[in-house]
Computed example of a mutant assay.
Amino acid sequence: MASIPPEAEDHLTSELLVAHLATSRDDRPHAAPVWYVYRDGAIEIATTGTKLANIRANPRVALSIQKVEAGDPLWGMTIRGTATVVESESDGINRRLNEKYGADEDAWTENTGVRIDVGSVDHWTYD
């Protein structure tokens, strides 16, 4: 498991941003926006539908996150890793996501928790 560099970790946790999760099934890519929490060196998301089915079939995933102000990119990051479905922890993951993003505590209860162990990270800033 790779670690996220401190500057990238600061960007990852500094504010409310949406990540784009890339999954693949049967050699067909699928990308969709997700809320995320960075916790204990891993990324936590909660999802359902196509994203969850794809993770169950192929746990190799990527996340893309970018900070933009007035159309100008400030920094970006791509995280590649292995996703694990953690149904037993779904309530806790949902609660952490809802708290971070200001949703009702009991929102999105149909989602299933997923932990993404970081395999590699590319992080860049625009000067």
Rank of each mutant, 00 (worst) to 15 (best):
M1R: 09
M1V: 06
S3M: 15
I4K: 00
P5R: 07
P5Y: 02
P6D: 12
E7H: 06
E7K: 11
E7A: 12
A8Y: 01
A8C: 11
E9W: 03
D10I: 11
D10W: 14
D10K: 15
H11D: 15
L12H: 05
T13Q: 12
T13K: 12
T13L: 08
T13E: 10
E15D: 12
E15G: 12
E15H: 10
L17E: 13
L21C: 04
L21I: 05
A22I: 04
T23H: 00
S24H: 07
S24D: 03
S24N: 09
R25D: 04
D26K: 00
D27S: 05
R28L: 00
P29I: 03
P29R: 01
A31N: 07
A31G: 07
V34E: 04
V37S: 09
Y38P: 05
Y38T: 09
Y38I: 12
D40V: 13
D40R: 12
G41K: 02
G41N: 02
G41E: 02
A42T: 11
A42S: 13
A42H: 13
I43C: 01
I43S: 00
E44I: 13
E44A: 13
T47C: 08
T48F: 07
T48C: 11
G49N: 14
L52T: 06
N54L: 08
I55N: 00
I55K: 01
A57S: 03
R60D: 03
V61L: 02
A62H: 02
I65W: 00
I65A: 02
Q66C: 08
K67T: 02
E69Y: 05
G71A: 03
G76Y: 03
M77S: 09
T78K: 14
T78W: 14
T78P: 11
I79V: 09
R80Q: 12
G81L: 08
T82A: 06
T82L: 06
T82H: 06
A83D: 03
A83I: 08
A83G: 10
T84A: 10
V85W: 07
V86N: 03
E87P: 10
S88P: 12
S88G: 15
E89Y: 05
E89H: 10
E89F: 02
S90N: 01
S90A: 09
S90G: 05
G92R: 07
G92I: 14
G92Y: 06
I93R: 04
I93Q: 04
L97S: 06
L97W: 11
N98R: 05
K100Y: 06
G102H: 10
A103P: 10
A103L: 15
E105G: 09
E105S: 11
D106F: 12
W108E: 01
W108Q: 01
T109V: 01
T109Q: 13
E110Q: 14
N111I: 01
N111T: 05
N111V: 02
N111W: 12
N111D: 10
N111P: 05
T112C: 01
R115T: 07
R115A: 02
I116S: 12
I116W: 11
V118H: 05
V118Q: 08
G119H: 12
V121W: 07
V121F: 04
V121N: 14
D122F: 14
D122P: 06
D122T: 13
H123D: 11
T125V: 12
Y126P: 13
D127P: 15
